[in-house]
């Protein structure tokens, strides 16, 4: 999988952010975004460690501590469902059910075509629209079955257009 993102691209990200130690989080987030599969490959983590002159264990400490990172490939689109208390009260459970049924996968799983990963997220401050999901930086609220079907359809079609 590490072949998807080239070494030069990773080096360019590090150069762009600057190789200071305090840039570690933003570098790793940028690599994850550029990966196409929403994860940070071990090879790139090693490269970051070398460039920032920090031990690889430190890089992994960060990668495994913060919830937004993944060290395993995920779907092209990560659908993050909020289950914090305000969303829980607004029946986040049924939103979970709608997505799992629509995609035919369980929470934490990725669809067979690697297009979608379903996972929980912590609150991202859209409680007035509860229940909510986030896909990339886009937020969808007041979820209904029709809306969920529409969202999935849009992303499926969008990815077809890209091909």
């Amino acid at each position: 999988m590490s072949g998807e993102l080239k070494k030069e691209q990773v080096l360019a990200i590090i150069k762009n952010k600057g190789n200071a130690k305090e840039k570690l989080l933003s570098i790793l987030l940028a690599i994850q975004e550029a990966s196409g599969w929403n994860y940070v490959d071990k090879e790139w983590a090693k490269l970051v460690a070398t460039e920032l002159e920090i031990p690889l264990t430190k890089v992994y400490d960060v990668l495994t501590f913060y919830a937004m990172f993944s060290t395993e490939p995920r779907g092209k689109y990560v659908i993050e469902i909020c289950k914090s208390a305000p969303c829980h009260v607004a029946k986040a459970d049924s939103a979970v059910q709608m997505f799992t049924e629509e995609l035919g996968i369980k929470m934490g799983e990725t669809t067979a075509n690697n297009l979608f990963t379903l996972q929980y997220t912590s609150c991202f401050g859209a409680c007035d629209l509860a229940p909510v999901v986030k896909i990339g930086e886009k937020v969808y609220g007041h979820l209904t079955r029709e809306k969920v079907a529409e969202i999935i359809k849009t992303y499926r079609e969008g990815s077809r257009c890209l091909k």
């Binding site: 130690k21 840039k23 430190k58 400490d61 960060v62 501590f65 937004m68």
Partner: peptide, 25 residues
């Protein structure tokens, strides 16, 4: 601007400073 990466505990000020320094929060 410094970015977090998903950790509620970083709202605690000293944890946040660790995170700004590029460490675990």
């Amino acid at each position: 601007i410094m970015t977090g990466a998903g950790a509620y505990v970083c709202g605690e000020n000293s944890a946040m400073l660790n995170s700004i320094e590029g460490k675990v929060g």
